[in-house]
Write a protein that binds this DNA or RNA. Structure first.
Length: 462
RNA sequence: GGCGGCAUCGCCAAGUGGUAAGGCCGCGGCCUGCAAAGCCGUUAUCCCCAGUUCGAAUCUGGGUGUCGCCUCCA
């Protein structure tokens, strides 16, 4: 397995800290709104990493947090009058349902910030006691970045270049010092020891240390992941806090996924160009979206477009047509060569493009074989085995082949479609081809495409 | 201003020194009542300039364009 370390900026051979176990922590969402495609990309990328490592024989412990204390959430509380729990649980459940649709495996650990306040306070207290942090007259607690000689080594910056662009008026000792604990002006109190609420960066460090980390050695965990926008300052700050409070580096490898863009610009809430996942999921199945997101290497920027989403659907359709052609058989073992080719590609820093080209080759070769009519039961089992392997490794191909093509079709529509198809079949039998074609046109207007086969007429929603 | 990414066929996208994967679209053919699906065939010298090398999309230098981080952000 080779992965690209975004701190060392090099593709490196992956070797775990301990035996064959791998500990991964990925920065999850702040739950003040529904998830957009950017969240999807991050989740799908690291879900793929997890699956590939597991398929490669590693035992993976995967953590992803929910940031459920944050100014935006508090703002929302103030505006709506709802309490924090009501707001955050709504968006957590929305996030989880979107992730399920995308076939993202549930993490082993899903810590919430609010449930780990004690661990955060403990870490802040230690940093205060050891002189890495200080408290201002207003009660805010800051991390003193000048006390960490390795500060800025993660994101490769220089102190003088990090002057904040916005004029901050606080009693900070250094421009890069960041907040560990924010004292409340409004009576908000999350902690037992400290008044107010935790800073953003501290939660990841504290939760990693509390739930995931190796207690000795040079590193807390193997891999830390997140979006490219988190490298600075979020991960820089996390790394520094962890280093100074635990004496270990936070992660052996750092991985960052690229952005999702719309019309060439980064998708973000503040630009108002986000696509909510739940809206896209009304038009396409989660699996199509997952396949689309995986069509570009996770490190590259990803420019979202309807055309290419449809392109991806067409490509995935072909796999499902194979699945229809061998429908109902037993699932056998995957072909060893096929397995190896897919896995080799993915073990090279998740090269999904190569993996997909192997898939394409499998599809066309299998169609050719099936066309010849000389496919044994054993071979059919292997075909299904290959598809099942794709499902476990890439998270695609696992749905029922007929249901896949009926996405967004209601029960009533299905009855209507079946009725029209039988009318057409009758017409065809009587060689009334004009009538048959009229029915086909009518189905076409309903976005239903039909295909006559030896075993009857099949239909697909296109 | 500092730092970084990217620039490959109409569109998407692999490829990090040895002579350009794959998908979509298009075109031709087979199959089909006609279609659809499927199969076969078919389309590029890699933003520009200079350099290193027997040899570069791949390395170096200089441009141009574009996106991003430096403020919350996946």
């Amino acid at each position: 397995m080779k992965i690209f370390d975004s701190v060392k900026r090099d593709k490196l051979p992956f070797s775990p800290i301990s035996g064959n176990s791998v500990k991964i922590y990925v920065c999850g969402p702040t739950v003040y709104d529904d998830a957009h495609l950017g969240h999807a990309r991050s989740a799908v990328s690291f879900d793929l990493l997890r699956r590939v490592l597991q398929e490669s024989g590693y035992s993976v412990t995967f953590g992803r947090n929910f940031t459920d204390v944050d100014d935006k959430i508090l703002d929302k509380m103030a505006k709506s009058g709802e309490d924090l729990e009501t707001i955050t649980s709504r968006y957590i459940s929305s996030y989880n349902s979107d992730m399920k649709a995308l076939n993202v495996l549930t993490p082993d650990l899903e810590p919430k910030a609010t449930e780990n306040i004690e661990a955060m306070e403990k870490m802040v207290l230690k940093l205060l006691e050891d002189g890495f942090a200080y408290q201002t007259s207003s009660g805010d607690i800051y991390f003193d970045t000048s006390k960490d000689s390795k500060y800025l080594s993660l994101s490769n910056r220089k102190q003088e270049d990090t002057e904040s662009r916005i004029g901050e008026v606080v009693e900070k000792r250094n421009p890069t010092d960041f907040i560990l604990w924010k004292s409340a002006k409004d009576g908000v109190r999350f902690g037992k020891r400290f008044v107010g609420r935790p800073g953003w960066h501290i939660e990841c460090s504290a939760m990693v240390d509390e739930h995931l980390a190796y207690k000795s050695g040079d590193y807390s965990i193997d891999i830390h992941g997140g979006g490219a926008d988190l490298l600075f300052p979020h991960h820089e700050n996390e790394a520094s806090q962890s280093r100074c409070s635990t004496g270990k580096e936070l992660a052996k490898y750092w991985m960052h996924n690229g952005f999702v863009k719309i019309d060439g610009e980064k998708m973000s809430k503040s630009l108002g160009n986000s696509f909510f996942l739940k809206d896209v999921l009304k038009l396409y199945s989660g699996e199509v979206i997952r396949f689309y997101l995986l069509s570009t290497n996770y490190r590259q920027d990803f420019d979202f477009s309807d055309t290419e989403l449809l392109n991806s659907k067409k490509r995935l359709d072909k796999l499902y047509r194979i699945k229809k052609r061998v429908y109902g058989g037993k699932v056998g073992e995957a072909n060893p060569k096929f397995r190896e080719e897919i896995l080799n590609a993915l073990q090279d820093d998740l090269n999904t493009s190569i993996a997909f080209s192997v898939l394409d080759k499998f599809v066309s070769e299998t169609n050719e074989k099936l066309d010849s009519g000389k496919v044994s039961k054993v071979e059919k089992r292997e075909i299904l085995g290959n598809i099942e392997f794709l499902n476990s490794t890439l998270g695609i191909g696992g749905s029922d082949a007929f249901q896949y093509f009926q996405f967004g079709v209601s029960e009533n529509e299905k009855i209507e479609i079946e009725k029209l198809i039988s009318i057409r079949s009758e017409a065809k039998k009587e060689k009334k081809f004009q009538k048959a074609d009229e029915v086909r046109e009518k189905l076409g207007k309903m976005s239903i495409q039909i295909m006559d086969t030896a075993s009857g007429t099949l239909w697909e929603k296109i």
